[in-house]
Computed example of a mutant assay.
Amino acid sequence: MKIFIQSLLMIMSFFLTQTYAASFDCNHAKTSTEHAICESLAVNDADVKMATTYKIVNKLVPMGTRSVIRDEQVKWLAMRDRCGKAEACLNEVYKMRQQQLDIYLQRIYKKGPF
Rank of each mutant, 00 (worst) to 15 (best):
L105V: 02
G64I: 03
V57T: 06
I11H: 00
V93W: 06
Y94T: 05
A36Q: 03
E72K: 09
V43Q: 08
V48E: 06
V68K: 15
L8R: 05
G64M: 08
Y104K: 03
H35R: 14
F4K: 09
K85C: 00
F14L: 15
F15D: 01
I11V: 15
V57R: 09
M79Y: 15
I103F: 05
V43W: 07
T33G: 06
K111E: 10
L77S: 13
K55M: 09
E72M: 07
Q18C: 10
I5T: 11
K110T: 02
N58S: 11
D71A: 14
A36S: 13
R97D: 01
L16S: 15
V93K: 12
M63E: 14
Q98M: 10
A88H: 14
D102S: 13
C89Y: 10
K75N: 11
A46K: 14
A21Y: 06
L16Q: 10
K55W: 00
V93Y: 10
M79W: 06
V68W: 02
C38S: 10
A42H: 05
L105G: 04
E72R: 07
L90G: 12
S7I: 08
H35V: 06
T53M: 11
A42D: 13
I5Q: 04
M1T: 11
K2V: 05
T53I: 08
L101W: 01
M79A: 15
K110M: 07
V93F: 09
F114E: 05
L60A: 14
Q106G: 00
R70K: 14
L77R: 15
K111Q: 10
A42F: 03
A88Q: 15
A86D: 15
N27G: 15
V61F: 08
E87L: 12
A46G: 05
K55H: 05
H35E: 10
N27V: 00
A78R: 15
M12Y: 07
D81G: 09
I56H: 12
K95I: 03
V48I: 06
A42E: 13
T53H: 08
S40I: 04
R66A: 04
I11Q: 07
